[in-house]
């Protein structure tokens, strides 16, 4: 997909500028967004997902601008899969219902085909036994796998993931990243905000470094990690490596 930002800015009510005139244009298949906390990564992803409007500037996806009014935004969001850091599953619905109900209500599947699709995905992600459990009965890793299943159930144009493993215990991180990688290999286009540098570097073609609301670096993920151009990225990567084994 082709992503384009023109002078994209976002300011919150308290006046702080979270995204500061970001310009960008490229054809993307898999992109990792990295950067320090509070750098504006989630804000950028929410704008891309049609969940938040920019204060100024424009975003184009495959040449068409992200709409401004709620009705068109709803249509836009339907075609995108979004995975949150945590708490994104509806807590009163079972794993199955979390996938099935949006398929029926939003995408007009029949009850039966929605259920079939949901069960197919749950089985694929190793959750067959857990389809009737509610989120509180699932581990963090299982919850995120359900969330991914829900996000891809209606075959979205692309997938946005906001730190899908940050709230997880380390042993669950792999099972979630494996799924994301598998989807990537099947041709799913995705943008992932992550602190898993190994995943960003090896599983994503491109990487972007977002810091203090500015897009400081962008390029092939290998190059970005091996040849950081800015002192900020160098420092950021250095900190991450400090306790590496």
């Amino acid at each position: 997909m082709k992503i384009e930002f023109q002078q994209l800015s976002r300011q919150f009510e308290d006046g702080r500028i979270v995204l500061d005139s970001i310009n960008f244009s490229d054809e993307i298949r898999t992109l990792a967004i990295i950067g320090p906390s509070g750098g504006g990564k989630s804000t950028l992803l929410r704008i891309l997902g049609g969940l938040l409007l920019p204060t100024s500037g424009e975003v184009f996806v495959n040449g068409s601008p992200i709409p401004q009014n709620e009705e068109q935004l709803q249509r836009y969001r339907k075609e995108i899969g979004f995975v949150f850091q945590q708490g994104g599953l509806f807590r009163h619905m079972t794993a199955l219902e979390n996938i099935q109900i949006p398929l029926v209500q939003v995408h007009h599947y029949s009850e039966r085909s929605a259920k079939e699709r949901a069960l197919e995905l749950l089985e694929r992600f190793g959750l067959k036994e857990d389809s009737h459990k509610r989120p509180f009965q699932l581990s963090g890793g299982q919850q995120q796998r359900v969330a991914i299943a829900r996000a891809i159930a209606a075959r979205p144009r692309f997938l946005l993931l906001d730190e899908p493993t940050s709230a997880l215990d380390p042993e669950y991180t792999t099972e979630v990243l494996d799924i994301v990688n598998e989807l990537k290999n099947e041709g799913m286009e995705l943008i992932i905000v992550t602190h898993e540098m190994g995943f960003a570097r090896h599983a994503c073609e491109k990487a972007a470094f977002l810091c203090q609301g500015r897009l400081m670096e962008y390029g092939d993920s290998h190059t970005l990690f091996t040849h950081p151009q800015t002192p900020q990225l160098e420092q950021f990567l250095g900190r991450l490596l400090e306790w590496n084994i």
């Binding site: 994104g88 599953l89 939003v106």
Partner: peptide, 27 residues
């Protein structure tokens, strides 16, 4: 009611009415 639940409702593509029917009311 958790703001995250409402954002998730928007993310899956629910309209306002659907959010009330499927998320807010049951909770």
């Amino acid at each position: 009611i958790d703001a995250a639940q409402l954002e998730a409702a928007r993310a899956v593509g629910f309209t306002h009415a659907q959010t009330i029917r499927w998320v807010i009311l049951p909770q």
